[in-house]
Amino acid sequence: MQNSHSGVNQLGGVFVNGRPLPDSTRQKIVELAHSGARPCDISRILQVSNGCVSKILGRYYETGSIRPRAIGGSKPRVATPEVVSKIAQYKRECPSIFAWEIRDRLLSEGVCTNDNIPSVSSINRVLRNLASEKQQMGADGMYDKLRMLNGQTGSWGTRPGWYPGTSVPGQPTQDGCQQQEGGGENTNSISSNGEDSDEAQMRLQLKRKLQRNRTSFTQEQIEALEKEFERTHYPDVFARERLAAKIDLPEARIQVWFSNRRAKWRREEKLRNQRRQASNTPSHIPISSSFSTSVYQPIPQPTTPVSSFTSGSMLGRTDTALTNTYSALPPMPSFTMANNLPMQPPVPSQTSSYSCMLPTSPSVNGRSYDTYTPPHMQTHMNSQPMGTSGTTSTGLISPGVSVPVQVPGSEPDMSQYWPRLQ
C-alpha cells in the first residue's frame, strides 16, 4: 500500500499530492522566468500547473527564495509595531506611495530583511487598517496617535501638521516623493554593498519588468496595427511575429492590442446598429396606417339613396333571421326581375335548405315592403301603392349592394327569390 497518492495534472505532468515540487523543477521555473518566458509558457514547457508556477515565482520575487514554506503551523507575524509605524510614516510623507514602493524602502533602510519582509498584500492590509482606524477615531485622537508614531512633539492640530517642515499644504506631496526618490538612490547604494547585491538587483529588475506600465504606442505603430486590423481581426502567430519585427513591439503586446481592438470594434458596431435601427424607425405612426385595407374592405359607393341603408337594423327591421341572411350572402350585381318571367313554384328541397333563413311567422307573405323604405322617402312611396304591378321595390342582398326588384302586385311571395340566388 502506497503512503502517498501520485497523479497526472491537466498538462500531463506527474505530481505527488500534498508534497511540494522538487527543487530542480523550481530552479528551472526561475531560470525560464529570467530568460523572459511568460508564466503560461513555463507552465506548458515544464508541465506544471499555472497556479503552481505563479505561486513559486511570486514567492521568489518577494523573498528571493525558491524553497517551499513549512507545511503546517502558523507563519510568524511580520507586521510588527515597528514595521507598522514605518509604513504609516512613509504614507504620511508621500500619500500616493504604492505598497511595493513601501516594501522596497523597508528593505533599503534595513527595517526588514528578506526573511521577515511583509508581502505587498500585508502592507496593503496595514494601510487599510490605518485608514479604518482613522475613520473610527476622532480628529484629536487621530492626531495624537500619528504624533506618537512619528515621534515628534510638534502641533498636529492642523492639517499642514501632517507634513512636517512644510508650510504650503500643496507642497508636502512633492517633497515626500522627492525624499522617497532619494531613498531609492540609497536603495541602490545599500544593496550594492550587501553580499547578495547582484541577486537582489536582478530580482528587482525582473520584478519591475513584470510590473509594467501601460504600453505607449507611437503613431507609426498605431498606423501599422490599424492597417493589419483592417486586413483581418484575428491575425495568426506568423502575422503577429512579422508585425512585431516590423514595428519593434513584443508579440504578446500585439496580441493584447488586437484583443482590445476587437472589443472596441464590437462596441462601435453595436452603436452603429442602434443608430441604423433608430433612423429606419419613423418618429410617429401615421393615422391612416393604423387601418389596414386588408382588414377593412372598402364599401362601394351607393348608386341610389335607398342603398345607403345596408342592414335591417338601420331600417328599423327587427327580424334577425333576414338580417343574418342578407349579411351572409355574397355580393351580387344589380339585376331586375321582369313581370314576364315565369313564376316557378319553389322546389321543396330548395325551400327546406333555406328554411332556417325565413321567419317562422306566416304573415311574411302579407307584409308590405314599406318597412324598408327610409324616412325621407315615405311620402313618395305612399303616393304609389304597392298593389300595382309596376311598383318597384329595392331588396338588399349584402352591405353596400342594392338590387332593384320588380315585385308582382298580386302576391309578394318571398319564396320566388331563392331559386334565382343559387
Rank of each mutant, 00 (worst) to 15 (best):
V8W: 04
E109A: 12
M148I: 09
V111M: 10
A99I: 03
A139M: 09
Y61G: 06
F98S: 05
L11G: 02
Q135I: 11
N114S: 11
G36A: 06
R103W: 04
N124M: 06
F98A: 08
M148Q: 13
V48W: 02
Y61F: 07
F15V: 02
Q135V: 09
S54W: 05
D140H: 10
V84Y: 05
K145S: 14
D115W: 08
D115A: 14
Q27M: 14
E82P: 14
M137S: 13
Q135D: 10
Y143T: 13
T63L: 03
S54D: 02
P81S: 07
L106H: 01
W100D: 04
A33L: 06
R147I: 14
N116Q: 08
A139C: 11
E31Y: 10
P20Q: 01
N3H: 12
S122P: 02
P22Q: 07
V30I: 09
L107D: 10
G7S: 15
Q89C: 15
R77C: 01
M137T: 12
I56R: 00
V83M: 03
R44N: 03
T63V: 03
P22N: 04
E82D: 10
A70R: 15
Y143S: 13
P39D: 05
L107Q: 15
E133N: 12
D41S: 07
G18T: 01
N129T: 13
H5D: 07
G73L: 03
V30C: 06
P81G: 06
R147N: 13
I45Y: 11
I45H: 12
S35P: 01
T25R: 08
E31S: 09
E93N: 13
S24W: 07
K28G: 06
S49H: 00
D144P: 11
R67C: 07
R44W: 05
N116M: 11
S65H: 06
S35N: 10
S35G: 12
Q27I: 11
G64M: 01
N9L: 01
I56M: 00
S35K: 10
G110M: 07
R67W: 05
S65V: 04
D144C: 09
A88G: 14
Q10W: 03
R44D: 05
A37D: 03
K145F: 09
N3G: 12
G13M: 01
V84K: 11
T25H: 06
M148K: 13
A139Q: 15
N129V: 09
I117H: 12
V14G: 06
T113W: 09
Y143A: 13
R59W: 05
R92F: 14
R19S: 02
D140M: 11
S43C: 06
N116E: 05
T25C: 06
D144G: 09
A33I: 07
E133A: 13
T25L: 06
R105W: 08
E133C: 12
Q10Y: 02
S74I: 03
D144W: 09
A79M: 14
H5E: 08
S85V: 08
G36C: 04
D144I: 09
I42L: 01
S35T: 12
G51A: 12
L149T: 15
L107W: 09
A139W: 12
Y61E: 06
N150P: 11
D144R: 11
Q2K: 15
Q136Y: 10
T113L: 13
V84R: 09
Q10N: 06
G64K: 06
K55R: 05
K75T: 04
R69M: 09
C94N: 15
P118K: 02
G13W: 00
L32F: 08
Q47W: 01
T25G: 04
E101W: 06
E31D: 15
S85M: 10
